[in-house]
Computed example of a mutant assay.
Amino acid sequence: MTGEYQYAPMFNLSTIGYPNFKNLFWLASTLYFSVPPFLIGIFILSTILNQWRKREIFITELSQKDDLTGIYNRRVLTQHLLKLDQDPQTVSSYAILLLDLDHFKRVNDTYGHIVGDQVLIQSAQILKQNLRTDDMLGRYGGEEFLIIIHNSHFYEVYRVAERCRQALETSRYLAGVGIEIQVTCSIGIACSESGQNALSILNEADLALYQAKSKGRNQITFA
Rank of each mutant, 00 (worst) to 15 (best):
90 T>R: 05
91 V>Y: 13
91 V>T: 11
92 S>T: 15
94 Y>V: 03
94 Y>I: 08
94 Y>E: 10
95 A>W: 05
95 A>E: 07
95 A>N: 09
96 I>A: 06
97 L>R: 04
99 L>F: 15
99 L>I: 15
100 D>W: 12
100 D>L: 15
101 L>Y: 11
101 L>E: 06
102 D>N: 15
102 D>W: 04
103 H>N: 15
103 H>P: 10
104 F>M: 06
104 F>R: 05
105 K>H: 01
105 K>I: 00
105 K>E: 01
106 R>A: 04
106 R>T: 07
107 V>S: 05
107 V>N: 02
108 N>D: 09
109 D>F: 06
110 T>P: 03
110 T>V: 10
111 Y>M: 04
112 G>P: 09
112 G>R: 11
112 G>Q: 07
114 I>M: 10
116 G>C: 14
117 D>L: 12
118 Q>N: 13
119 V>A: 08
119 V>S: 10
121 I>E: 11
122 Q>R: 14
123 S>E: 03
123 S>L: 02
124 A>Y: 10
124 A>W: 01
125 Q>N: 15
126 I>H: 08
127 L>S: 01
128 K>P: 04
128 K>Q: 14
129 Q>H: 07
129 Q>A: 10
130 N>Q: 09
130 N>I: 08
131 L>F: 03
132 R>C: 07
133 T>Q: 13
133 T>I: 14
133 T>P: 02
133 T>A: 14
134 D>M: 09
134 D>C: 07
134 D>H: 02
135 D>A: 03
135 D>C: 01
135 D>R: 01
135 D>N: 06
136 M>V: 15
137 L>R: 04
138 G>H: 12
138 G>S: 09
139 R>S: 04
141 G>W: 15
143 E>T: 03
143 E>H: 10
143 E>V: 10
144 E>G: 05
144 E>W: 03
146 L>N: 00
146 L>Y: 05
146 L>K: 03
146 L>D: 01
147 I>W: 05
147 I>D: 04
147 I>G: 06
148 I>N: 00
149 I>A: 05
150 H>L: 10
151 N>D: 15
152 S>Q: 09
152 S>D: 04
152 S>A: 14
152 S>W: 03
154 F>Q: 13
154 F>N: 05
156 E>L: 06
156 E>Q: 09
156 E>F: 03
157 V>L: 08
157 V>R: 01
157 V>C: 14
158 Y>H: 14
158 Y>K: 14
159 R>D: 15
161 A>Q: 08
162 E>N: 12
163 R>E: 00
163 R>F: 02
163 R>G: 02
165 R>L: 11
166 Q>I: 06
166 Q>L: 08
168 L>F: 08
170 T>N: 13
170 T>S: 14
171 S>F: 00
172 R>Q: 14
172 R>H: 13
172 R>M: 09
172 R>A: 11
173 Y>T: 05
173 Y>F: 14
173 Y>Q: 01
175 A>G: 01
175 A>M: 03
175 A>W: 02
176 G>I: 09
